[in-house]
Computed example of a mutant assay.
Amino acid sequence: MIPEHIFKHLEEKNTVTEYFFTIHLVIYADIVSFIPWSSGRDAEEIINILSMLFTKFDESSVKNKVYKVHTIGDYYVAIGYRSGMRNPFEECENMIKFAYSMIEIIEEVRKEDKELNMRIGLHTGEVIGGIMGTSIARYDIYGPDVLITNQMESNGIPWKIVISETTK
Rank of each mutant, 00 (worst) to 15 (best):
A43H: 13
Y81N: 09
I106S: 03
K114S: 15
E91T: 11
S39L: 02
I103Q: 04
D113K: 08
Y67Q: 03
R41W: 06
I103E: 02
Y67F: 13
S61C: 09
R110E: 03
L53W: 04
N64T: 12
E90M: 12
A43E: 09
A99T: 00
C92E: 14
R86G: 05
E104L: 04
L50V: 11
K114N: 14
S83K: 14
K114G: 10
G80A: 11
M118L: 14
E115C: 05
S38E: 02
E115I: 09
I46M: 04
E90A: 15
K65C: 08
M102C: 03
P88Q: 12
E90S: 13
Y67S: 03
E93C: 10
K114M: 08
V66D: 06
T71P: 00
K111Y: 10
D42I: 10
A99P: 06
D74M: 03
Y75E: 14
I47S: 14
N48Y: 11
R41S: 01
G40W: 07
E93H: 15
L50A: 07
P88G: 05
E108K: 11
K56W: 07
E104A: 07
E45V: 07
M95P: 04
N94D: 13
E45A: 08
E112M: 06
G73S: 01
S101V: 03
F57V: 06
F98H: 00
K68T: 14
R110Q: 02
E108S: 10
I79L: 04
I106G: 00
A43P: 12
N48C: 12
N87H: 08
I106Q: 08
Y81V: 12
G84V: 02
S38A: 01
I103S: 01
Y75N: 09
F54D: 07
N48P: 00
K97N: 12
H70K: 15
Y67I: 09
I105G: 02
M52K: 14
N117T: 11
E90L: 15
A43W: 08
A78C: 13
M95G: 08
K68P: 02
Y76I: 06
M118C: 09
K63W: 09
L116G: 07
I72A: 12
E93N: 14
M95K: 06
